[in-house]
Write a protein that binds this DNA or RNA. Structure first.
Length: 260
DNA sequence: CTCGACTCCTGTTAGC
DNA sequence: TGCTAACAGGAGTCGA
């Protein structure tokens, strides 16, 4: 599923959509309109204008429009961004391997004949007008030890819940978080405020390292743990059977031996 | 404050 | 073989 890394790929794809006149907005799936806006609002905002800049905070991709407004694109679990029919990502984890144009939930045409669309089988993405980027926490690429301490705060919530809280740290999804905690050798169920300073430092280090490394490798599904996140999977570090449970409704895998 | 339960959604797959 | 139910997880709401 698209986590911050995938949306960063999408942002780079979106660079190809800049400074091209938008001729018309084709489809906007009803489920994509979640702030009381209508298709007409989107059309009025975009048609005749062009995108000028890209921005991204966590999993939110923002395209600024030549009229001073902006639109925010959210990709849910299975959304991919296509510009001129081409996506930075061919197939997504947990999504379909098929590639059906009928899954285009948001699409527009440029005057030069090109297109931009979000192809999303499960319809969990969204299009927002002038999204408020400040409700999101520090971007996953910008995490430092001090911003991590601020994000964890004095919270007694489970550590994994805090890491996935987009208002604290923006862009970490389920797979990245499991990978990071596995590398950090910390149990995801630990209270966020129970970490010793060396654990906080270790966690900050592995957030930075993991995000950087998996960006090079090709996405949030390319971690060392991912292939073993199945029932009966063994820890790739020490061979111990992985534990499977849910935190905040999200499937979690961790190693009972070295994640303490 | 924190939590689980429920909602949205649909292609894929495990299991009978 | 064919059907059904569970599953995947990002994001939001609600009540305890």
């Amino acid at each position: 599923m698209p986590e911050g890394i995938e949306v960063e790929y999408y942002r780079q794809t979106a660079l190809r959509a800049l400074n091209r006149e938008i001729r018309l907005v084709g489809t906007v799936d009803q489920n994509y309109l979640r702030d009381g806006h209508s298709l007409i609002d989107i059309k009025n905002l975009l048609e005749g204008n062009s995108f000028e800049f890209t921005n991204r905070r966590g999993k939110l991709l923002v395209l600024s429009v030549s009229n001073g407004m902006s639109i925010g694109l959210r990709f849910g679990m299975t959304g991919r961004l296509l510009v001129d029919g081409v996506s930075a990502i061919e197939t997504l984890e947990y999504s379909s391997t098929k590639n059906e144009p009928k899954w285009d939930r948001f699409s527009l045409k440029f005057s030069d004949g090109g297109t931009l669309s979000i192809r999303d089988p499960r319809r969990l993405g969204a299009v927002q007008i002038n999204p408020d980027i400040e409700v999101l926490g520090v971007d996953l690429y910008e995490v430092t030890i001090s911003s991590l301490l601020k994000a964890l705060g004095g919270s007694s919530r489970a550590l994994k819940t805090c890491l996935m809280d987009q208002s604290k740290i923006a862009g970490l999804g389920n797979l990245l978080t499991d990978e990071i905690l596995w590398r950090s050798s910390i149990d995801p169920r630990r209270a966020a405020n129970s970490l010793a300073y060396d654990e906080q430092k270790r966690l900050a280090y592995h957030i930075r390292q993991t995000v950087k490394q998996l960006t090079k490798l090709g996405g949030s599904h390319t971690g060392k743990l991912q292939a073993h996140r199945v029932t009966g999977g063994l820890c790739p570090k020490d061979g111990e059977p992985l534990e499977r449970y849910t935190i905040g409704g999200r499937t979690t895998y961790s190693c009972p031996l070295h994640q303490i």
